[in-house]
């Protein structure tokens, strides 16, 4: 039994240095996730600001319309389809780095979810906080930055963390545009060794470890934030 597993391990990962598919794939997955998260947060903030400004003041009507359109389209279509459209349609006639394509597709996808999370956070902060900021003489924007967003972000931190975990796992469809991410790395090994168990389990374990590690850091961060305000 053990020997069989050992042989399977050697066959799948050691022979012909097949572990490199996993290692290279992991690097691509981390790269795509990291930059997509940054893009997603950036877009999410922007859209959330536009949307909540519209909700609060009725201004930015046109921008709000486009933001709504963006949210509807992104949240109403599967991420794989968005990825394929980004690669084969939007960047159809250009030879563009695939990591960049994936970052753009996943970043725009995540941005829509981040936007709604942050908007929910902003709307959950008491209106009195907003009035207190404005009455001191802070502009709408600075009130947002100094007073509303810090409270909003703290409220939505668990939801945001969850979104990033979802994003990390969703990047596993990057193989659809022939990007060799972690999942595709496992697939390539599978296509060489015709063994499903080892490559798939290895890939799953790596994702799981990453998510657990990330969760650990988020828990630490939450604890520190909680300690700073009783």
């Amino acid at each position: 039994m053990f020997e069989k597993l050992m042989n399977s391990f050697l066959h799948n990962f050691i022979e012909e240095e097949r572990w490199k598919y996993i290692a290279d794939g992991l690097f691509v997955t981390l790269q795509v996730t990291f930059f997509a998260v940054i893009l997603g947060i950036f877009l999410g903030f922007l859209v959330a600001m536009v949307r909540s400004t519209y909700d609060k003041t009725g201004k930015l009507k046109l921008l709000n319309f486009f933001c709504n359109l963006y949210l509807t389209v992104i949240r109403g279509t599967p991420v794989v389809v968005q990825l394929l459209i980004t690669y084969f349609v939007i960047f159809g006639s250009v030879n563009i780095d695939k990591v960049l394509v994936a970052v753009i597709a996943f970043g725009f996808n995540s941005g829509a979810y981040v936007a709604e999370i942050i908007r929910g956070g902003i709307m959950s902060v008491d209106q009195g906080q907003f009035e207190a900021g404005r009455s001191l003489g802070f502009s709408y924007f600075r009130t947002m930055i100094y007073i509303i967003l810090p409270q909003a972000l703290k409220n939505v931190l668990p939801a945001l963390a969850n979104e990033f975990i979802v994003l990390l796992k969703e990047t596993s469809v990057a193989g659809y545009i022939a990007l060799q991410d972690l999942t595709k790395g496992g697939d390539i090994i599978r296509s060489r060794t015709y063994d499903a168990f080892m490559p798939l389990i290895a890939v799953a374990v790596i994702y799981l470890l990453m998510v657990m590690l990330f969760n650990y850091f988020v828990k630490q961060l939450e604890r520190r934030l909680r300690n700073s305000e009783h």
């Binding site: 006639s93 193989g175 022939a178 060799q180």
Partner: peptide
């Protein structure tokens, strides 16, 4: 090597210069 899930996608990538 760019490994596509489908043969026609590889061909599409070729026509698009990828």
């Amino acid at each position: 090597i760019e490994r596509y899930n489908k043969g026609f996608e590889a061909v599409q990538a070729l026509t698009q210069g990828k």
